[in-house]
Simulated assay, not measured.
Amino acid sequence: MPELPVSALMTRALASVGLDTPAKHVVGMLVAHDVRALPVIDHLGRPVGVISDVDTLSTIHRRSGRPNGLLRRAGFQARVSRRDSEAVVASELMRAPAPTVLDSAPVGVATQRLITAGIGALFVVNSSDCLIGVLTARDALRPLLRRDPEIHAEIEHVVASAAPSEYGIEVSVRDGEVRLHGCLGLHSTAAQIECAVLRIRGVLAVHNAIRYEVDDMLITGF
């Protein structure tokens, strides 16, 4: 089964700010939408940067010269004077480039990028590089909630397609962890099955105990 695309898990409704959005409005958006970061878009709707709550706080503190009094509301309630908000705009608060991912990209690819993005979110773009959604770490975790019987049924299909009918492979699934037992003719077939199972949504780990009669991977050098 093909891996889910990012578009299947992303959130389409999201807040964003423009390059000239005043800092006061940026703070208001972060608090009102209860998010850790906002994308900054240009006049064509393309994400060009990202503003995090911590970066916003740091920049405004530095520019205002006042080290205290900006955050009070579960760690993030901002007070920015008119002088401060006029002095700082989104383009000064943002980091560039924005962490983006194409809507058609596999979720597995996006997950790797989420790990390195550092803000727990990727901004999803279409083929024109326009912002259409956001993928958070929580979104990427959703497929892991798939029920074990569903995972088991898909694995059985994978095994039946890859293994010759004269060989029997036992499959067990518990809390997303898969165990494979049995014997096959070739080492390469056992390896192919393991790789295919790892790509199945909801699989957290594969314990491959499949034996084989011929180590063709050693013979061929693969």
Rank of each mutant, 00 (worst) to 15 (best):
V26P: 02
V27E: 08
G28E: 15
M29Q: 15
M29F: 13
L30A: 01
L30D: 06
L30N: 01
V31C: 09
V31R: 14
A32F: 05
A32H: 08
A32E: 14
H33S: 15
H33Q: 15
H33L: 09
R36N: 12
R36S: 13
R36G: 15
R36Q: 09
A37W: 02
A37K: 03
I41M: 07
D42C: 11
H43T: 15
G45K: 03
G45C: 01
R46M: 07
P47K: 03
V48L: 03
V50L: 08
S52D: 05
V54A: 12
D55K: 10
T56P: 00
T56M: 14
T56D: 06
L57Y: 10
L57Q: 10
S58N: 12
S58L: 08
S58A: 14
I60T: 10
I60G: 07
I60D: 00
H61F: 03
H61V: 12
R62H: 10
R62C: 02
R62V: 07
R62P: 02
S64G: 14
G65W: 07
R66P: 08
P67D: 05
P67W: 06
P67Q: 08
N68E: 09
N68Y: 03
G69Q: 11
L70P: 14
R72W: 11
R72K: 15
R73P: 06
R73Q: 13
A74K: 11
G75C: 04
F76A: 13
Q77K: 11
Q77C: 05
Q77S: 10
A78H: 10
R79T: 14
V80S: 07
V80N: 07
R82I: 13
R82W: 05
R83F: 08
D84F: 04
D84I: 10
D84M: 14
S85C: 07
A87E: 13
V88N: 01
V89M: 09
L93V: 11
L93R: 00
M94C: 09
A96F: 04
P97L: 01
A98Y: 02
A98K: 01
P99Y: 01
T100M: 04
V101R: 00
V101G: 05
V101I: 13
L102H: 12
L102R: 09
D103Y: 01
S104R: 04
A105R: 00
V107K: 00
V107I: 15
V109Q: 04
V109G: 01
T111S: 08
T111K: 08
T111Q: 10
